[in-house]
Design a protein around this nucleic acid. Structure first.
Lengths: 360, 360
DNA sequence: TTGTACGCGTTATCAG
DNA sequence: CTGATAACGCGTACAA
């Protein structure tokens, strides 16, 4: 049943939203002009450049003037104009974050954690969605880079050489994530998708499943996970019966259809590894719909540990990614570089763990 | 079971990430300096200001020069420096979006849809998370507003009078959402939470439930939804047995505990309205755990239609919010204002619908 | 340690 | 319709 209140012709009722504090009525004619560095300087009795230095390199200004300036800043509520600063210095306080999908909870957590690290230091996170499209990635990079960001975060790795060169030449710190390539653009806080796939194969072997299959996207991380799964299956003596490739994965129905096809085309499959939790959840629902018992009739494993994974009966076995840690470490690495660190060891990984639930 | 590959001491395997296209090796010593308006002007044989006009107000430049300028722009790949433009004109091409929680799928969809409308017109969305905290909201507003955004989007309404005044004085278009107050700051694309609560009460009455209860946050939209629910319960002759207030809702466990408490403290409750789907999903899981049959033993309804709602058995009855439409309309309204529209009728609502599933 | 002079790249203003 | 001029607010470069 779907319906609208009263059939749709009744005007909506106002919400009585509470208001907090007193309304500030601006004096008529008051110019809302922001405080400039010059005014702070006048009040503190110094030159504008000294105020600038006191704020950006406190060590290079005498204690006495620094205090006076601080008082003047507080009295006026001065905050520097980010555009003027960026125009002059060629670098803004914006950190550009590129995600393939804004709505993804996984990426959201990582970006959020990264923002929590950077914001206290005066950086603003700007988020661009690349929508799993190379063309959009390129155009987003072009337009966000015009803002001269202080640093760049990718939830994922950049595959286009064109964009890799561009980012490298800019000379700003870049962090890639969500994979573990040997040749990152700059820094990396990732994990090995290959190992994740292998972990699933080893888990299947430990559970005594023999005939196994794979469902996943034909590109990107799906292929990396498949590579590890193949490898693990081989060394554990599993029989990899089928590899099903999907072009795009947009909803649960893709996983449902894929499992359906798999079960129609092949017989006696013990266990299926789905390259992400969305596919796995769809497959799990399809198995339930068919009246299959998990894991005795069929076992299913996913990748990512989305919040659905724990809740959908009988619970989805999956590989957990510590998204918060990835974001936090990425933020810390960027910050270190922004503060002048030049050390190597710029690649690090975050451990994956397999979470066993009812589906295997 | 939780575990790490090989006990955690094995180094991670490299992912063989594919690379696309040829690596562009920059000529050594090549200055990566961006094209300025002056160069375009020189090539087109006009003054810089004419280039500026041709790009921003094509109507005010002769056809002949406009074409020459366009060619020069394409030949050089010129893109204006957003900071210089913002510094001079006092307005950037940034649109500030404030969300209470970045990770929320609902808000994410709205923000995404809004971005899809604005980006083709050259605007960049900048996202700030207020974390359901007044202090953070105020500080985020202060720092994002320093960027002189062209427009502002809130997924929610602003309650602090201090911030309301501040935003009003800035004179940039502002859209609030997710509620329907009589006095928005500027523009509004919302819905009536009060009506939503009333719809649930009417649905409960239609299903012949009598003794009903409410679980929700003690502030914000939860209270608005409770208001409508109370009203609808009264006029439909329902008995509102209990109203359970939660201070914060951070996960499914909050809803589980709340239902637990409700069922321990009160007898014979027919139906429970949970002010959002997170609480409702937790309550639903708790009911299942207790072996209660839905809806015969107890009925549960939520608000929001999150993606969990449809999947968790027996399916959660809930109020669907058209997040995409909200975002799209918000973007369109901002765009209209940015293009000089000054029309009134700045408040509009998006219809809610109740989606009946197995839980009622 | 502090200050002077200037320029970052663009657009508002006003004159032609 | 087009252009000359100046200014947006700050920080670099260099001098004192």
């Amino acid at each position: 049943m779907k319906g609208r209140l009263g059939g749709g012709s009744v005007p909506p009722t106002f919400d009585q939203v509470k208001r907090i504090g007193k309304s500030i009525i601006p004096e008529s004619g008051s110019e809302r002009r922001s405080v400039r560095i010059e005014e702070v300087a006048r009040i503190a009795g110094v030159a504008p450049i000294t105020v600038s230095r006191a704020l950006r390199q406190p060590g290079r200004v005498s204690e006495e003037k620094r205090l006076k300036i601080q008082q003047a800043v507080e009295a006026t509520g001065y905050a520097s104009n980010p555009h003027a600063r960026a125009l002059r210095s060629g670098r803004s306080n914006i950190v550009a974050a590129f995600v393939s999908n804004i709505v993804s909870q996984q990426f959201g957590l990582a970006v959020q954690s990264c923002a929590e690290v950077l914001e206290p230091h005066g950086f603003q996170l700007m988020i661009g969605q690349t929508s799993y499209s190379y063309a959009r990635e390129t155009s987003m990079i072009q337009s966000l880079m015009a803002l001269r960001p202080a640093a760049v975060l990718f939830t994922g790795v950049v595959e286009l050489e064109e964009n890799r060169s561009f980012l490298r030449e800019l000379g700003v710190p870049v962090v890639e994530t969500w994979a573990f390539p040997p040749d990152p653009i700059d820094m990396l806080v990732g994990f090995s998708n290959t190992d994740g796939g292998r972990m699933v194969a080893q888990h299947f072997a430990a559970q005594r499943y023999r005939r196994v299959a794979f469902i996943g996207r034909s590109g990107g991380r799906g292929q990396l996970r498949l590579g590890g799964f193949r490898d693990g299956a081989r060394s554990s003596g599993l029989e990899l019966v089928a590899e099903l490739s999907l072009d795009t994965v947009s909803g649960l129905s893709d996983g449902q259809q894929a499992l359906n096809q798999l079960l129609n085309d092949y017989e006696k499959i013990d266990a299926v590894f789905c390259a992400n939790d969305l596919i796995a959840t769809g497959a799990l629902l399809e198995a339930s719909r068919r009246g299959l018992n998990m894991p005795s009739d069929i076992a299913i494993a996913g990748f990512g540990d989305s919040d659905l994974a724990a809740e959908i009966p009988p619970g989805l076995t999956t590989i957990r990614i510590n998204c918060r840690l990835i974001g936090r470490r990425a933020g810390e690495k960027l910050l270190a570089r922004l503060n002048g660190a030049t050390d190597g060891s710029s690649s690090e990984t975050v451990a994956l763990e397999i979470v066993k639930r009812g589906s295997t």
